[in-house]
Simulated assay, not measured.
Amino acid sequence: MSKGIPHVLRAGLLALLLAFLLTPQTFEPLLKPLVQANAPAIYNQGSLLSLTIQHLTIVLVATLAATIVAVSLAILVSRPIGAEFLPLSRSLVNIGQTFPPVAVLALAVPVLGFGEKPTLVALFLYGLLPIFENTLTGLTTLPPAVMEAARGTGMTGLQRLLKIEVPLAMPVILAGIRLSVVISLATATIGSTVAAKTLGEVIIAGLQTNNLAFVLQGGLIVGALAMLIYDGLSAVEQRLSTRA
Rank of each mutant, 00 (worst) to 15 (best):
M1H: 13
S2P: 13
I5P: 05
P6D: 07
H7F: 14
H7L: 14
V8P: 05
L14F: 07
L14E: 03
L16K: 06
L17P: 02
L18D: 09
A19Q: 09
F20W: 04
L21P: 06
L21T: 10
L22R: 06
P24Q: 12
P24N: 11
E28V: 15
P33A: 01
Q36G: 13
A41W: 07
Y43S: 10
N44G: 14
S47E: 12
L48E: 09
L49T: 13
S50V: 15
T52L: 05
L56R: 06
V59N: 04
A62I: 12
L64K: 14
I68L: 13
I68G: 07
V71F: 08
S72F: 10
I81Q: 14
G82M: 13
A83C: 07
E84P: 13
F85T: 15
L86I: 11
P87M: 14
S89P: 15
S89A: 15
S89Q: 12
L92C: 08
N94Y: 10
Q97Y: 08
F99P: 09
F99A: 11
P101Q: 12
A103T: 07
L107D: 06
V109T: 11
V111Y: 04
L112S: 04
G113P: 11
T119K: 07
L125E: 04
L125N: 02
E133A: 01
N134K: 00
L136N: 05
G138D: 03
T140F: 06
T141H: 02
L142M: 00
L142W: 03
P143K: 01
M147Y: 00
M147H: 09
T153Y: 09
Q159P: 02
R160S: 01
R160G: 08
K163P: 09
K163N: 10
P167D: 02
L168F: 03
A169L: 02
P171G: 12
L174W: 07
L174Y: 05
S180G: 03
V181M: 07
L185Q: 03
T187K: 05
A188N: 05
A188D: 03
I190L: 09
G191D: 12
A195Q: 12
A196S: 11
I203L: 08
I204Y: 08
A205K: 05
Q208W: 10
A213I: 06
Q217C: 00
I221C: 04
I221Y: 04
G223L: 02
L225K: 04
L225Y: 00
A226P: 02
Y230S: 13
D231N: 01
L233S: 01
Q238S: 11
L240A: 07
